[in-house]
Design a protein around this nucleic acid. Structure first.
Lengths: 361, 361
DNA sequence: ACCTTGTTGACACCGGTTACCATAATAGCT
DNA sequence: AGCTATTATGGTAACCGGTGTCAACAAGGT
């Protein structure tokens, strides 16, 4: 009875035993063919007699055989996993992309593994590299703003990992890119404000260094220039895509005299912040101040008044990104349609915009 | 030039070649030991001479060797992947859990794979089973409301997959459960309302069949009974944890005469809906109507007035769930602290509650 | 000399894949 | 017809990079 503290060889040894599922060998035996032939059936090899295929497939059906992904991963040096790499201030966006990717992956054997990274961290590139090399991912979808880093794309090439970047501009060739036309969408939104007779329009930008922030700002400036409106620098406040930064930016904008009659915020979070700040000052929206946001995240229709905003088709973009990755490998249809690379945002009119009150009439 | 359309044996053949990373064999050769010994070093086996370990570890350091997870997965019959199974109306909650799990996984070699399922679908159990069997997950975290399904827990046991369920009550033994005390939290919230002199308090419940909905409702009823307040059935409206259902429920509640002076909504989404409905009717919040929500999701502080709500420590619960899974396997500290199983929610007082206006004074 | 105990290695195995080869079937040629 | 060239088909064995089993060997205790 002495052998109490019997040392275990490894910490993982207490995991349950393997299940009794059929393997490729079982199928081969039952179908009276070799492993290799079964492998050919699984991989839809064209060099195979139709009758043999049918026979093997019958056995597969019967036994409910499913190839072991771990073994495949080892033999192929490639895992059937799609990675989602992000470092994003906007939770809702990540979830939407996730949803889009998962829709695309539904009928494949691929799974989605999520991987937040720390832009800012000096080791980010090394972290991503070791992640990719270790997991031997089939491919990755990279979200903005990390997607704007060309070094990551280069890294993917180096380690032989497919990738698709999402962003607000075509930063890469079409096979590696899913982009939205933020610039044009903002132009539309601001034209709408101008058409409502707004002349003093404030802008809350995104953080410096974000491509989307630049695109959206340029759209804003273009629309104003187009209408021949010239505004002082003070009507542009920098935000960080967060609710709090929206409040701060709005505080500085609303302290101006004369006050802007409308504010365009570069995302909904900040637009909600602007609305909040307006309420704190007792300003009526849209009577005293019109607001437009960007993204059409769930918050937009939930505040009062519901926010007019630009709808960013992020779920569709996520789906498209995933399809680009698996395109050609898991070809379900024989027709290989090229996935579109550019997506169009549209203005969703809700309740936060109205013509300004005429003081001078 | 004739061999143009040369048939490929398999569709996956055009994947890049394996990288030239060192393998366990290389390490064994360089260190002058056997593969098995290297394996022992990797797995921190105690049956190993200290000097040998050091020698091998030096070589590992030098070469930057990292064990191939695919090979390990095959040999062990177990993948180093944690699954997140959910079917949830609340996007924010999923993301928060995800964040918590990822925090816990940071220093392990585990990755997180997300797996939405369709509660409602007849094949849900089979889907989950095939997912677990195929991927040979290390463990899964199951979110409410699917976590309330005992069959899934049984399934996990059958296929030998560790699991931790999250929920609003202890549905399972502590090793498999991370629960919050919703009931008590709601009691506190309603007591607070009562202390502010509210006497007619409406309730927007969660969907029938959700354990959390039941717990929260029971808390509500308990607090009222405790204070000796008896209210008509009509002050209870069923919701579905969605914004829209909050509006609908509020519409029916606010049409009552006399109107409730306060409404407790079983989650923030619905509370936001109640607020929205109040605004539509021109009711002031909190002057004419007090509102309390549950969850403290990002929407709560972003609406006007910011919502008083119950903070549900969901990130911490996610972290704890993941730690329970990996506990004992990836023991970083020698002290194995037991992860707590119960988490406490707290009332966050913001701006949506005030004493009712005295009409009768 | 014998039994422990600690340390290490040889070898088969996990479940797929590919390279290479053998055979059969078909076509093309004299 | 007879023979070879070519293609179609499927088998064998090695391999991917780890892990478990079990035996071997050394050192120390009795």
């Amino acid at each position: 009875m002495a052998t109490t503290a019997k040392k275990r060889e490894s910490a993982t040894a207490n995991l349950p035993a393997t299940t009794g599922k059929p393997t490729i060998n079982d199928i081969a035996r039952l179908a009276g063919v070799s492993k290799k032939t079964v492998s050919r059936v699984i991989n839809r090899s064209p060099l195979l007699n139709e009758k043999t295929r049918e026979r093997v497939e019958a056995v597969i059906q019967e036994t409910g055989y499913v190839p072991n992904p771990q073994a495949r991963a080892l033999a192929l040096g490639r895992n059937f996993l799609i990675g989602l790499i992000y470092d994003n201030p906007n939770a809702q966006m990540i979830l939407n992309v996730q949803q889009g990717i998962l829709e695309a992956l539904r009928d494949t054997d691929c799974e989605l593994v999520v991987r937040p990274v720390d832009r800012g961290s000096a080791t980010m590139l090394d972290d991503i590299r070791s992640f990719l090399e270790r997991q031997r991912l089939f491919g990755v979808v990279i979200l903005p703003p990390v997607s704007e880093n060309d070094l990551i794309a280069k890294l993917c090439d180096e380690v032989g990992c497919r990738y698709v970047r999402m962003g607000s501009a075509m930063l890469d060739n079409a096979a590696h890119m899913v982009a939205s036309n933020d610039r044009d969408a903002v132009v539309d939104a601001v034209r709408y404000l101008i058409a409502q007779d707004h002349k003093r329009i404030g802008l809350v930008t995104g953080p410096h260094g974000f491509r989307s922030a630049r695109e959206r700002r340029e759209g804003f400036e273009f629309a104003l220039a187009e209408a021949g409106i010239k505004l002082p620098r003070s009507l542009i406040a920098e935000g960080h895509y967060t609710f709090e930064s929206g409040i701060t930016a709005a505080d500085s904008l609303l302290a101006l005299s004369p006050r802007p009659t409308a504010i365009f915020a570069c995302n909904d979070e900040m637009a909600a912040g602007v609305l909040f700040a307006a309420r704190e000052r007792g300003l009526g929206v849209p009577e005293d101040l019109s607001i437009i946001g960007f993204d059409d995240t769930p918050i937009a229709p939930r505040v009062w008044p519901p926010l007019t905003t630009v709808r960013w088709p992020i779920v569709a973009m996520g789906r498209s990104a995933a399809l680009k990755l698996i395109n050609g490998i898991f070809a379900h249809s024989e027709i290989e349609e090229e996935e579109p690379s550019t997506f169009f945002s549209t203005l969703i009119r809700r309740g936060s915009v109205a013509p300004p009150k005429k003081d001078k009439t």
